[in-house]
Every structure is written in C-alpha cells, then in structure tokens.
Simulated scan of single mutants.
Amino acid sequence: MTTEVSLSPISGPSAWRGDELAGSTEWIYVLGDAERAELEEAGRKFVADDPDLRTVNAADYPLDAARGLIDECARQMDAGRGFVLVRGLRTEEYGDALAGAIFFVMGLHLGMPMEQNQLGDVLDHVIATSNKTLDDPGALPSRVRDRLPFHSDSSDVVALMCLRASKEGGASSLVSGTAIYNEILRRRPDLAPLLFEPWHWDWRGQDPDAPADTYVSPICSYVDGIFSTYAGSSMIFSAQKYDGVPQLTDAQVELLHLYDEISQEQGLALDMDFQPGDVQWLLNYAALHSRTEYVDWPEPERRRHLLRLWLKRDVGRPLVDGFGKNVVKERGAEEQKPVEGGAFRIAAAVVPNQDWGN
C-alpha cells in the first residue's frame, strides 16, 4: 500500500460536475417490473418474519431478479460516480412498514447496517419534528428544515428513501469531493497539501456518548491511486473549543472557508428532487451531501419524511490509517447490548421519534 499526496488533478468518473449530469438521467436507475416485484415480495416476507434489525442478514432474503440492481449500485459507489438514485418503488401504495422493509433488504445486500444514534437504532429518519433551526442549541441537522452545509456522514455508505416529499424545496444536493479538490488545487496549490494533514474533529458533537472529545483524520486520502474525501468544516471548527486541541492556523482557516465556498458554487453540485419511492445510495468517500431548505405541508402526516441507513461496506478500499469514518464506525461492530428506547422491529422503526431533536 502506497500513501501519497497528490498535487496533480484527479481524473475518473468520481470527478463529475453537477451541471454536466443535470441534463442526463445516467445517474438514475429505473426499476424494471421483475425487479420491483421481487423487492416487494422480499419486503412482504420481511414484514411477516418481523426479524430483529440488528441481527438479520442478506442471506435470509435472497435476490435474483434484482441482482443486477444491487450490482450496479455497488459498481457506481465503489468505482463510478459514487452515487446512484433508484426510482420506481410504489411507496405510496405500500405503507411505511413495507417500504422500510424493502429499503432495509436492499441495504443488507450492499453492506452492514450501523447504529445511528444513542438508542442503537439502525434505521433512522430525516424529518422535521419541531420548528428549530440549525442556530438553535442542540438542533439535529436531520430534524430541521434549513439548508445543510455539505458534509460526510459517519459510515461508508449513507442511503435515503423518500416516503413523502416536501411542499417546496428539500432537494438532495451532492457534490464530488474529487471536483472540489481539483478546484482547490487549481486556485490555491499552496493550500492543497494541508488537506492530507491531520485535523481534529468534534467527536462529542456528533455523539454525546463518544469516548473522547475529538478524533483525528485528514480531509483527503490518496492511497494506491485511489482518492477519498472526508469533510465537514463545522465539526473541525467546533473541535476548537476543547482543551488540548491545537488552534487552527490562518492557512487552515482559509482552506476550510475556501472548501465550503467552492462546494456551494453554481454548477458544481447536483440537486435532485426526491419523489416518493426514490432511494439514493451514496459512498461517503466519493461525494459530500446536503439538502436545500424546504417548506413542509401543514398536516403532520404529510411532512417530508426520509428513511436513512448507514452501512459499513468493506470492499478493501485503500485509505490512510485512521481516516475519519474508520474511527467512528467501529461502534457499529460492538456486541449487541440492551438499549432502552431503540426500535429494532420494522413496524416500530419506520415511525419517527417525535421527541428526537425537540
């Protein structure tokens, strides 16, 4: 394994621009009838079996007709653009339990579901449960309606299923980490090497039960010719409040601001309007994600509601030692332990905790 600092532009399918993809549908996988029928059958069996979401595995729900779908999602995440949008599920006809079961079965075939919160839930929600904004203390990004900054999640893969769309806005935004790096390299080659150096990240801000205040990871990894990204400047800035964390240099602060500015520039990101039944699979190492601000429907039952999976996906991707998510994701490998309040059966797991984020 060879670890390098690349000061040359990175090429390949992960170096895409949103304005180049927006006019095409090459990133959308439309389900065929046989694929959809098999997924629905697997989902109905899953609901009837009612397995524990922490221990169920893919072998219990084999896929044949949908194998091409799973293989294409894997290919795009591992060696392609880093994401794919799957369209064609009829979630409005299913009810949330069946929709969630289909989503979970797909996830089992693409990786190992991980815990996402202190309750140990492996199926979580993106839904506004209050009128808080990101400026409010304790506000959870998944439970507000604000536009989110681009960031990486604490997993190899993050997946979203749209159960219900917003009244206005709420597009899912993706941006290529490779494209951001190339643009930084073009504009400020003097700052680019800093991306490969260690940075302190606010661990306790992401997880109140974290074993330490911070962890350390570079923003970029380039190993054996494979480029990877782990980003989210807010967690770097918030780590500055802890004792013992080195203060950011002027150059580091300038780089973080430049990174965020480039990610928001017109044409770089791809905005996709989620429709009910859409499922987005994203490799966190290839692209960052956010969403646009949105307006909800007044009726609680019509609120914008996405289901979320975090997956551990071990395909031997070469990374520098201790690369961001490798530190956090180990919690998903802990022995199963009793957790009060967690939802580990599909019928309960698809119902959001209305107190979460209030």
Rank of each mutant, 00 (worst) to 15 (best):
V320W: 00
T292R: 10
L270D: 04
R317G: 05
Q264D: 15
L307Q: 06
L268I: 09
L258R: 07
Q247L: 11
L319Y: 06
L258P: 08
S238L: 02
E261W: 11
F237R: 15
F323R: 03
K241G: 07
Y230W: 04
R302D: 14
R303P: 00
V327L: 08
D271Y: 05
A269D: 13
N284E: 10
Q240K: 01
P298S: 15
V339F: 08
Q247G: 08
G332Y: 02
Q264H: 13
L248T: 09
Q280P: 01
V315Q: 13
M272T: 11
Y230T: 04
H289K: 08
K329E: 10
W310G: 06
W281T: 03
L311Q: 01
Q280D: 04
L306Q: 03
Q252A: 12
G316P: 10
G244W: 09
V295W: 00
L283F: 08
I262P: 03
K241A: 15
F323W: 02
D250Q: 13
D278W: 15
L282D: 06
P276T: 11
V245Q: 06
R291G: 07
E335Q: 05
R291M: 03
A333E: 10
P298A: 05
N326D: 15
A251P: 00
W310A: 03
A286I: 02
K337L: 06
L255R: 15
S234E: 15
R308W: 02
D250N: 05
P338V: 11
F323N: 07
R302A: 05
V328Y: 06
G232W: 04
D260Y: 09
G277C: 06
L311S: 00
A333V: 01
S233A: 15
D321H: 10
F237N: 14
S234F: 13
E335P: 00
A286Q: 07
V253M: 09
L311D: 01
R304K: 15
H305R: 09
P300G: 13
Q336C: 03
V315F: 09
S238W: 00
G244F: 07
T249M: 05
M272L: 13
Q240R: 06
L256F: 10
I236T: 02
T249Q: 10
R317E: 07
G232R: 04
G324R: 04
D321M: 09
Q266I: 06
Y294I: 07
R331P: 02
K312M: 04
M272R: 12
V295L: 10
A269F: 12
I236M: 14
V327G: 07
V295K: 01
D271R: 08
Q247K: 15
V315E: 09
D321V: 11
A239G: 05
R313Y: 02
S238M: 02
Y242M: 08
Q247Y: 03
D243W: 08
A251H: 07
A231C: 01
L258M: 15
P298F: 02
R304D: 14
L311K: 02
D273P: 00
E299Y: 01
L256A: 13
E335D: 05
R291D: 07
W310K: 04
K325R: 08
G267C: 05
S233L: 01
L282Q: 10
L311P: 00
